[in-house]
């Protein structure tokens, strides 16, 4: 895992479920096919209601110049991020759109597992509720080693929770490389 993750923040609210992250009609693309993988980036976050898209004001498109990849690198969310279905297409969509990390108060279990085990992005938990304190478009930097999020736009600094027991899986790049490393898998 890189030691810092830097980029523009895109801010969302509570209970961002997997249907909002990638609506069901796009699940017919097969993420195992590289040309189709990028299609998930195109439709990422396309079911978030406009008023909730890019807080605090909303109505901020997630994609600007490129239709597949967003300008934003880090998503800041509220409670229960990624709730709903088990579709791995959700962290895949964010990854395909160029998102490297999500910072939320806490996650729904399956989304968290998928993000970690698939090695798509780093799901950080914040100590404070940050979705009302960071604005869409702020430049932020995550200092991974010290569990800190710097808001470069405002100069504020926020504590993140340590990644804890999933850190070795994230470090290895997902559950397959991790299982090989610990001798669980010999292929």
């Amino acid at each position: 895992m890189q030691s810092t993750i830097t980029g523009k923040a895109y801010v969302l609210g509570d209970n961002i479920d997997t249907d909002q992250i990638i609506p069901a009609q796009y699940l017919t693309f097969n993420p195992a096919v590289p040309e189709e993988y990028q299609m998930f980036g195109k439709f990422a976050l396309s079911s978030v209601p406009a008023s909730q898209a890019g807080l605090p004001k909303g109505h901020v498109p997630f994609h600007t110049k490129d239709e597949f990849v967003s300008d934003y690198r880090i998503i800041v969310g509220g409670k229960n991020f990624g709730c709903g279905s088990s579709r791995e297409h959700a962290p895949i969509a964010l990854d395909a759109a160029g998102i490297e990390a999500v910072v939320a108060e806490f996650y729904a279990r399956i989304f968290f597992r998928n993000a970690v085990n698939g090695g798509y992005l780093v799901p950080f938990e914040s100590v404070n509720r940050l979705c009302d304190r960071i604005c869409t478009g702020d430049d932020v930097k995550i200092d991974v080693e010290n569990n800190l999020l710097h808001n470069l736009t405002t100069g504020e600094q926020w504590q993140l929770k340590p990644l804890g027991e999933v850190a070795p899986i994230i470090d290895a790049g997902g559950v397959f490389p991790y299982a090989k490393k610990v001798g669980m898998l010999k292929v």
């Binding site: 993420p31 279905s85 088990s86 579709r87 791995e88 399956i110 597992r113 998928n114 085990n117 698939g118 997902g174 559950v175 397959f176 299982a179 669980m184 898998l185 292929v187």
Partner: peptide
């Protein structure tokens, strides 16, 4: 319980999951 594709791919090959 429900799992994603990566976990399921792992189970398919090994019959195990953490």
């Amino acid at each position: 319980t429900g799992i994603g594709n990566t976990d399921a791919g792992f189970v398919m090959g090994t019959g195990k999951l953490w």
